[in-house]
């Protein structure tokens, strides 16, 4: 069943320049969706509309079958968590623990419940040792992790991550990716915006591709990447990794093999022939 429904939404930033002219798309719980597209194709605008930070000029957005028209951003945030591109915009206090407690202040929980939730979240993100650390002193990747924790402690059914991988090194990217994988097991809906095509291959199961404010593709991930012309049609050039896979397909690699382990296994076969 659809958890988020975007129904014939019309939106523009400026007069005479419509970005979305009746955009419709739906997301279900348990899905890990990557929204991809060129810079300026409307990815961030779409998720800001879902989070109530922008409001459609026409059309409607439903979360759990209720329209969000009259809901505040804070109300929506309890259902759909939002992790911003820049974690610095999400951190306000002088300890990781306070940061997490701040996220729970609207929930009318007892002190004991707050403590339990914080303990649980710290453990999930391997942040127990950072409980009293000032988030400002952490590296960008660690800040990103704390930002993600402040969203997840509210236990939203859906979570939106807007470019969580920018400005951090690959090992920290993989760490963030690990937590996304861990969330998969909780039947949440994850919506990920990223330009790192190679990274979303392991994180997601579905691709929503935007082009000039329209949904160009809405496909299972493997189906989308089985044919690289899909990417080219939305104006994105394949990464070297994807180009290499295309080359290997001509050598007999199966169409749905895209993960690193699958590629290495195929290369091993080639080398031993």
């Amino acid at each position: 069943m659809n958890y988020i429904t975007v129904d014939r939404v019309v939106f523009s930033y400026r007069r005479n320049e419509t970005l979305f002219d009746g955009l419709s798309v739906a997301f279900s719980l348990g899905e890990q969706v990557a929204i991809i597209g060129r810079n300026g194709s409307g990815k961030t605008t779409l998720v800001k509309l879902i989070a109530g930070m922008l409001r459609p000029q026409r059309g409607r957005i439903l979360i759990n079958n209720e329209t969000i028209t009259r809901k505040s951003i804070a109300e929506i945030a309890t259902q759909v968590g939002f992790v911003f591109q820049n974690p610095n915009f999400m951190l306000f206090t002088n300890s990781v623990e306070k940061e997490l407690a701040l996220s729970l202040q609207h929930f009318k929980l007892s002190k004991q419940e707050v403590k339990e939730r914080i303990d649980e979240t710290l453990a999930f993100f391997d942040l127990t040792n950072y409980r009293l650390t000032n988030p400002r002193t952490l590296s960008r990747g660690e800040k990103q992790k704390v930002a993600l924790a402040t969203v997840l402690i509210q236990d939203p059914k859906a979570i939106i991550l807007d470019e969580p991988f920018s400005g951090i090194d690959m090992s920290q990217k993989l760490m963030i990716l690990q937590y996304i994988q861990k969330l998969k097991q909780q039947d949440k809906l994850i919506i990920l915006i990223t330009h790192s095509l190679d990274l979303l291959l392991t994180a997601c199961t579905k691709i929503v591709a935007l082009q000039n404010g329209q949904i160009a593709y809405d496909l299972p991930l493997k189906e989308f990447f089985a044919d690289l012309t899909h990417l080219l049609k939305i104006g994105l050039e394949p990464t070297d990794y994807l180009s290499f896979i295309t080359f290997l397909r001509k050598k007999g690699l199966q169409k749905d093999a895209i993960e690193k382990e699958e590629i290495i296994a195929f290369l091993l076969e080639c080398a031993l022939k």
């Binding site: 597209g37 060129r38 810079n39 400005g167 330009h195 990417l231 104006g235 994105l236 394949p238 990464t239």
Partner: peptide
């Protein structure tokens, strides 16, 4: 300084 981190794959090329 990290100027490729937010651009799409085409812009990166």
């Amino acid at each position: 300084d990290e100027s490729s981190s937010m651009v799409d794959s085409t812009s990166k090329n």
